[in-house]
Simulated scan of single mutants.
Amino acid sequence: MQQHKETLEKGLFFQIGTEKLIELSLATFGLYGLVWSYQNWVQLKRQDPTIKPLLRTLLAIVYQLDLYQRVHKQSQADRESARWSPIRVYILFVIFNLIPTWLLVTGHPWGFLVIMLTLLPNLLVNQAINRIHDKRIHFYAQNTELDGLDWGVLIAGIVIWLTILVMAIS
Rank of each mutant, 00 (worst) to 15 (best):
Gln39Ser: 12
Leu162Thr: 10
Met116Thr: 08
Arg83Ile: 10
Gln43Leu: 01
Phe13Met: 03
Thr50Cys: 00
Leu104Ala: 14
Gly33Gln: 08
Leu124Met: 13
Leu124Lys: 10
Arg79Trp: 06
Arg79Ala: 12
Trp161Asn: 02
Pro109Arg: 09
Leu165Gln: 05
Leu92Thr: 04
Val159Ile: 15
Phe139His: 06
Leu34Ser: 12
Ile160Phe: 12
Tyr90Met: 07
Thr101Met: 15
Leu24Pro: 02
Ala141Tyr: 03
Pro53Tyr: 02
Leu120Ala: 15
Asp147Val: 08
Arg88Thr: 11
Leu146His: 13
Asp134Leu: 05
Trp161Gly: 02
Gly33Asp: 08
Tyr68His: 06
Glu6Met: 02
Leu67Tyr: 09
Ile61Asp: 06
Leu26Tyr: 04
Leu120His: 07
Tyr32Thr: 03
Gln76Leu: 13
Ile99Glu: 05
Leu104Tyr: 06
Leu54Val: 13
Ala128Thr: 08
Gly107Lys: 02
Val35Thr: 14
Arg70Gln: 15
Lys20Tyr: 06
Trp110Val: 10
Arg88His: 14
Leu117Thr: 09
Phe14Ser: 05
Asn143Ala: 02
Leu154Val: 14
Gln15Ser: 12
Leu103Tyr: 05
Arg46Val: 03
Leu59Tyr: 10
Leu92Glu: 09
Gly33Ile: 00
Thr144Ile: 02
Gln15Tyr: 02
Thr144Pro: 00
Trp151Asn: 08
Leu98Glu: 07
Ile115Leu: 10
Lys135Glu: 06
Arg70Glu: 14
Lys73Ser: 13
Thr106Leu: 06
His108Asp: 15
Ser37Phe: 11
Ile169Met: 12
Val42Trp: 03
Phe139Cys: 03
Ile16Phe: 05
Leu26Gly: 01
Gly152Ile: 06
Tyr90Cys: 03
Gly148Met: 03
Met1Ser: 14
Tyr63Ile: 01
Gln127Glu: 13
Tyr63Glu: 01
Glu145Lys: 14
Leu162His: 02
Tyr38Ser: 07
Ile99Met: 05
Tyr140Cys: 05
Ile160Pro: 01
His133Gln: 09
